[in-house]
Design a protein around this nucleic acid. Structure first.
Length: 270
DNA sequence: TACCAGGCAACTT
DNA sequence: AAGTTGCATGGT
């Protein structure tokens, strides 16, 4: 299918730090999501996906008008003007709660390369085989049931480091029906955050990533090491960053944050 | 070698 | 309540 939209850039989405299963492939990307692996290619005024499933329209959040959001932020200050221009093709993907929660537990105090490699290993070892595209095999992110016999050491062997025990605990809690990530979407923002913060390995930052990328809550503002640099060097805010961000970047703090992250990380502040 | 990476849990004060 | 410290691991 072809999707025409000017706020839709594959490379920007792939490198914006929200998804770890977009693989550069020939002229475009192979994207693994929704138990599928498909080729996507950039066009001048949109993208082409080698698949007809309407799942992708939802996954890519095509019902939202990102230009109207950019228009809100680009007039707030010069840095946001540059950031929204630079990342005008970014969209917030609607991703799977379990995969996102596991992924962002792994992301803590880690770098994007290692996170990507750990997610790939987990999928190859424990997820369903999906298909082979141009000689490369693609695997689904494992479902909790497929991780039932995976030990703390097994997680460690996938390169997740000391976060192994957090992953193990999360899967155990899900299998024992202590938590149901797929039932949390009915909760209010604050109740959802409280439920997620109870999980080991999930703190304020990871929680904000999870609610933004998997629960369509766009006011969470994840503050990581890059965003800290932006807040300090650009906005001169060193203390009470959460409070400042919540106020200054509303009402789509999470989306604004994504522009700041993508731009700030690219221009390498300091 | 020391520091960093989409921070967090556990511990101390 | 607020501040400090250790943490796996590969890259620079």
């Amino acid at each position: 299918m072809i999707i025409k939209n000017c706020n839709l850039n594959l490379e920007q989405i792939a490198t914006s730090g929200q998804a770890f299963r977009w693989y550069k492939h020939q002229e475009g990307y192979v994207v693994v999501a929704g138990h599928k692996a498909v080729k996507m290619k950039q066009l001048d005024d949109g993208i082409e996906i080698e698949d007809e499933d309407n799942f992708w329209l939802d996954y890519l959040d095509m019902d939202r008008d990102y230009q109207s959001i950019i228009d809100i932020y680009k007039v707030k200050d010069d840095f946001l003007l540059k950031a929204t221009d630079f990342g005008s093709g970014i969209r917030i993907l609607k991703q799977d709660p379990f995969e996102i929660t596991m992924t962002f537990i792994i992301s803590a105090n880690n770098n994007i390369t290692r996170i990507t490699s750990a997610i790939k290993l987990l999928s190859e070892r424990y997820g369903d085989y999906i298909k082979t595209i141009d000689g490369i095999d693609y695997y689904d992110f494992p479902k909790p049931e497929q991780l039932i016999n995976v030990s703390v050491e097994d997680y460690r062997a996938c390169g997740v480091g000391y976060r192994d025990k957090y992953l193990y605990q999360l899967v155990k809690d899900i299998l024992n029906q202590v938590v149901d990530l797929y039932a949390l979407n009915t909760l209010s923002d604050s109740e959802l955050k409280k439920a997620l913060l109870r999980l080991k390995g999930v703190g304020e930052k990871v929680c904000n990533c999870i609610i933004l990328f998997a629960y369509e809550r766009y006011d969470g503002f994840p503050i990581d090491t890059w965003i800290k640099k932006v807040l300090i060097e650009v906005y001169q805010v060193k203390d009470n960053q959460e409070k400042f961000a919540e106020d200054y970047f509303k009402p789509y703090g999470g989306i604004a944050q994504q522009y700041l992250f993508y731009y700030g990380r690219t221009i390498k502040l300091t």
